[in-house]
Design a protein around this nucleic acid. Structure first.
Lengths: 126, 126
DNA sequence: CTGAATCCGGATGGATACTG
DNA sequence: CAGTATCCATCCGGATTCAG
């Protein structure tokens, strides 16, 4: 997830984005933000995630201290995942970005349409 | 950059992260935040980016309205890239995340070490 | 100088099957 | 239930080459 290229600076932004930029982490994070959850429950609710990716994602999040893993000693083994304080604070910080996205989505959409339209017309300079 | 999987919700967070989660966008963004810059200048300063990825990244950012592109009509063609207002506001929002990262990097590092240590010892339940 | 097109190796991630 | 291991298709991204 992290070592995309050898030039990873000590840049804190890249550090977070490597942790959060992938397709699933944020989804899992936001599910767990609603409350603790078990593996298969996450699998069902995260919509489209594969068993493998859920497993990988959870392990990474756990390793980074965002998620806690509690094994219930029961007949059918149960494992409960939950956000740690650290994970909750990260999720909170992400909301700033979410707010930006929500606020500016129209602008971005407009920019895109405009760009696509401009590119479609070879006769731009007239 | 965006369509990692067909399940892209209309989730605004994923939307931003798809735009910003890749390895280079943020680097380019933060360079341009310092002021307008030309192609080859970016190429030199962004440390490790290839010509192709710079080109691709700039085009994406331009399409999304984050970056403006101005062609100077000169003998050796010059193209100047700069952040738009939209791009600057995004960059500003990213700083919240950067602050989080800076503040919690030690915690994350600690969590990782701890996790790695725990995993190294098969004898956990005693 | 600024870029686009092509080629291609490596990483990413889904499907499946198997284990505890 | 909660995962891991394997197999394999796809995509990303670097190097190179060509064009305006």
């Amino acid at each position: 997830m992290a070592p995309r290229n050898p030039v990873n600076h000590a840049c804190p932004i890249r550090d977070v984005l490597d942790r959060v930029g992938d397709a699933w982490s944020v989804l899992v994070l936001s599910e767990l933000a609603k409350g603790p959850c078990r593996f298969n429950a996450l699998l069902r609710v995260v919509n489209g995630i594969s068993q493998r990716m859920l497993s990988v994602t959870l392990r990474t999040l756990e390793r980074d201290g965002m998620v806690s893993r509690r094994v219930l000693p029961l007949a059918p083994p149960q494992v409960e995942y939950a956000l740690t304080d650290l994970g909750q604070s990260l999720f909170a910080s992400l909301s700033a970005l979410k707010d930006w996205a929500t606020a500016h989505q129209p602008s971005v959409r407009a920019a895109r349409s405009s760009y696509d339209a401009r590119m479609a017309q070879p006769s731009a300079a007239a």
